[in-house]
Design a binder for these strands. Structure first.
Lengths: 216, 216
DNA sequence: GTTCAATGTTGAGCGTGTTCATTTTTGAGC
DNA sequence: GCTCAAAAATGAACACGCTCAACATTGAAC
């Protein structure tokens, strides 16, 4: 068997990942160059592209591991006997606190992760789908306990919750919200609205009046 | 006054915009080069960067106009006497149908628009804030008619609706949904859930059981 | 018509991410 | 220990977005 071969490959990959992580953290994603990463890892430029399809894939690889760890941790530390709202806030806040470690890099990650191509997209989808499944599980549990409407589709509710989380995250990372606390506050408010709903039980869904004023 | 000066400037800007639009449509955003755009517009490469901060800004400029037109059209064509759900679907579907004209370019636009820098970000925010205000106006109207909960914060509800729209849009443009119809269907389902809410009126928000199974 | 400061334009040049023909390394078969 | 195809690594070369010192154009003042 090819022990040396595999070991060298693993070593090089590890060195490249470490170098990339260090330089991304030090200089940010855009400022860090592949040449510098390669030099720090002790390999040639071209070698980097043997292990990652492109620079964006390098960043995605680095965060895929860490993000899946955050998912595990978030559900592992979910307090028992907590309300559905608090459970959702707990899970999504875990991500926000993770991204708070380096908001500059977080911006690049979230930006890159949303529109990936090819294998990287599939890798992310393999992380995302089970995650959304587990969030949906929270709604299923609430249904089982008679707390949530029976007609509700858990996966749709999970997607809505994720959408609200993503919006708060993006607003924060774009500087529209001042800090982590503000982002968490917006997240909670948005989720609260989703749980309580908009319409009154009456529900005679007719008549919506005209709009005033146009934009500049 | 400097009539010729202004006219030349306006002409050049128009030519650059036309050239950029044509080439982005023909080849896609990434494949189209600034050199080619400049050549088609009859100017030097450097001149392009006088009118747009960078290539991404060029794309953003092109779509800022068109998007604000879509906003106007969406609210102008809002049928009277329609349900809140149908009103929301109408507004957000307008955007989806607009993006459906060129989904490849739409991907680049949505991707670029989400994380803009500097003046481009402000320009987008000046488009987005009033838009969200008008969506919030739909909820205010529903409240005024006694259809929506009085405690609801209209802007939060609007942001939730936008988040659901964005999620459906991103899923579609990433190929997770097959076509425009599927995206519109997901949008409607998600909004329906937001309007009806999750929790039962009972609301004794306690007890949420354990999760099973970890991810690979 | 000439002057000249302000404004607008230019394209060679820089540093970047990425490719790929070439070179080096590896280990099973003998 | 040698052979040699397969695998891995290399770095020169390429095309790109973008900058900026140099150059061209404009029009108010005289």
């Amino acid at each position: 068997m090819s022990g040396l071969r595999a070991k060298n490959k693993a070593d090089k990959e590890a060195r490249i990942r470490e170098a990339a992580w260090a330089l991304f953290a030090e200089q940010g994603y855009e400022a860090a160059t592949v040449r510098e990463i390669a030099q720090r890892a002790g390999v040639a430029q071209g070698t980097v592209f043997v292990y990652a399809k492109d620079k964006a894939d390098l960043l995605a690889m680095l965060f895929a591991d860490r993000l899946s760890a955050v998912v595990e941790s978030a559900f592992a530390t979910l307090p028992a006997g907590v309300s559905l709202l608090d459970a959702l806030v707990h899970v999504f806040s875990s991500f926000m606190r993770f991204y708070a470690q380096d908001t500059r890099l977080a911006r690049s990650v979230v930006r890159g992760v949303l529109f990936l191509e090819g294998p990287a997209a599939e890798r992310m989808e393999r992380l995302n789908r089970p995650f959304l499944g587990r969030v949906a599980g929270l709604f299923v549990a609430a249904q089982a306990q008679g707390l949530a409407r029976a007609e509700l589709v858990p996966f749709v509710a999970a997607l809505n919750a994720f959408a609200a989380y993503f919006m708060a995250l993006a607003s924060w990372l774009n500087g529209l919200l001042p800090d982590l606390a503000a982002a968490e506050a917006q997240l909670r408010l948005a989720l609260e609205h989703q749980l309580l709903g908009v319409l009154l039980p009456s529900s005679s869904p007719i008549e919506l009046p005209t709009q005033q004023g146009a934009a500049p």
